[in-house]
């Protein structure tokens, strides 16, 4: 079984981000970066599948500059067999990333792609589905349980009203949600040890063809702290007074 895990380097998801003063982009000064937390769950899932079946081959892949090596090394430390850095300093939107991944997969037969449902920077939730569409593969998004069998993935996924279980013939694309697993903690020595695993650098097979661009950013209107009330009676009176509840 061959598994591909595309990962994205993102600003530390727990850090506060602000627009640049001129509104042209995000102020990245002093920010730390990490594997997108949903992609980290995908790496963890692939690592667990490999632990159960050691014949599994897990490849992590990312597009970017040399700075992404940190995240690709972490994926190796978590259990991936090899990492691939598609070297590019260009800007890639979701359809372009999907095009590049599709081109990679055409040349590198793979049974299943496991990746995060969305990245915590742009919150798009697009690439997995676009990739599946471009390849003509089935998809299961928002996965909370994955069972791989010969030629088949059985995936339980979260829905708006509960959950459902799908059976997908392989190859397939699976995007993962928070409840799938809790990624292992990797201490620094583990990341250094993973330096013996291959991190291959390749040129992109496609050129990004941007179909959208971000032309500006701003802070959202902020909510002001309101009034403190001293009792439930006072709270109900305020709600009725404001017409929120019927008096």
């Amino acid at each position: 079984m061959k598994i591909l895990v595309p990962i994205k380097r993102v600003v530390d998801p727990y850090a506060k981000v602000r627009p640049l003063a001129d509104g042209s982009g995000i102020d990245l000064t002093g920010q730390n970066f990490a594997i997108n937390p949903f992609d980290e769950i995908a790496v963890e899932e692939a690592a667990r599948i490999k632990e159960r079946d050691p014949s599994t081959q897990v490849t992590a892949i990312s597009i970017g500059g040399p700075e992404v090596e940190d995240q690709l090394r972490k994926a190796l430390a978590m259990g991936a067999d090899e990492s691939i850095l598609v070297e590019s300093t260009a800007e890639w939107d979701s359809p372009s990333v999907a095009d590049e991944l599709a081109a990679y997969l055409k040349d590198n037969p793979t049974d299943v792609v496991i990746m995060g449902k969305q990245a915590t920077d742009d919150d798009n939730n697009q690439v997995g589905q676009m990739l599946a569409a471009k390849l003509g593969w089935p998809q299961a998004t928002f996965a909370s349980k994955i069972e791989l069998k010969p030629g088949e993935a059985v995936v339980t996924r979260e829905t708006d009203t509960g959950e459902e279980t799908l059976s997908l013939p392989l190859p397939a694309v699976i995007t993962v949600d928070l409840r799938l697993n809790e990624p292992r903690y990797i201490a620094l020595p583990g990341i250094i040890k993973a330096r013996s695993k291959p991190l291959n650098k390749v040129a992109p097979k496609t050129s990004p063809r941007l179909r959208t661009c971000m032309t500006g950013v701003e802070s959202p209107p902020s909510r002001q702290a309101g009034k403190r009330v001293g009792s439930v009676d006072e709270l109900l009176a305020e709600l009725k007074g404001r017409g929120v509840l019927n008096g």
């Binding site: 742009d122 950013v217 802070s219 959202p220």
Partner: peptide, 29 residues
């Protein structure tokens, strides 16, 4: 192209949407 979670329309080709968990509103062309 796809634009997810649009909250405002500036023109038929320019949209606003939240990014970074709503900490930032981005304008997407």
């Amino acid at each position: 192209a796809m634009v997810t979670d649009v909250i405002a329309i500036a023109s038929p080709t320019v949209f606003k949407r939240p990014i970074y968990a709503g900490s930032i509103i981005a304008t997407i062309e």
